[in-house]
C-alpha cells in the first residue's frame, strides 16, 4: 500500500478506537459509581445532599479521563502534527 494512503487509513482508524476504548472504561466506572451512590442513598436518604454533590464530582473526574482521550482523538483528526512528514 502507498505510504500516504496507509497513513490516512491509520489516522482515521486510531481516533475511533481511542474513543471506543476510553468510553468502555469510562462507562463501566461511571456505572459503578452511580450504582454505589444510589445504594448509599437508598440506605440513608437523609444524606442525599452530600452524596449527590460528591457523586457529580466523581462522575466529572471519571468523565475527564474519557475527555482526555477525546482531546487526543481530535488532535489526530483535525491537527495531526505528523502530517507534514507525509505531505511536504
Amino acid at each position: 500500500m502507498d505510504n500516504a494512503l496507509a497513513f490516512y487509513a491509520i489516522s482515521i482508524i486510531v481516533p475511533g478506537l481511542t474513543i471506543a476504548l476510553a468510553v468502555i472504561g469510562g462507562a463501566a466506572a461511571q456505572g459503578k459509581a452511580a450504582a454505589a451512590a444510589f445504594e448509599a442513598m437508598a440506605r440513608q436518604p437523609e444524606a442525599q445532599g452530600g452524596i449527590n454533590s460528591s457523586l457529580i464530582l466523581s462522575l466529572a473526574l471519571i468523565e475527564s479521563l474519557a475527555i482526555y482521550a477525546l482531546a487526543v482523538a481530535l488532535i489526530i483528526l483535525f491537527a495531526n502534527p505528523f502530517i507534514s512528514y507525509i505531505l511536504p
Binding site: 466529572a60 468523565e63 475527564s64 475527555i67 482526555y68 482531546a71
Partner: peptide, 13 residues
C-alpha cells in the same frame, strides 16, 4: 491543564 482540557473537551465535543 486538567481543568482546562476537561472544559474544552466537553464543550468542543
Amino acid at each position: 491543564i486538567s481543568l482546562s482540557v476537561r472544559l474544552f473537551g466537553n464543550l468542543f465535543g
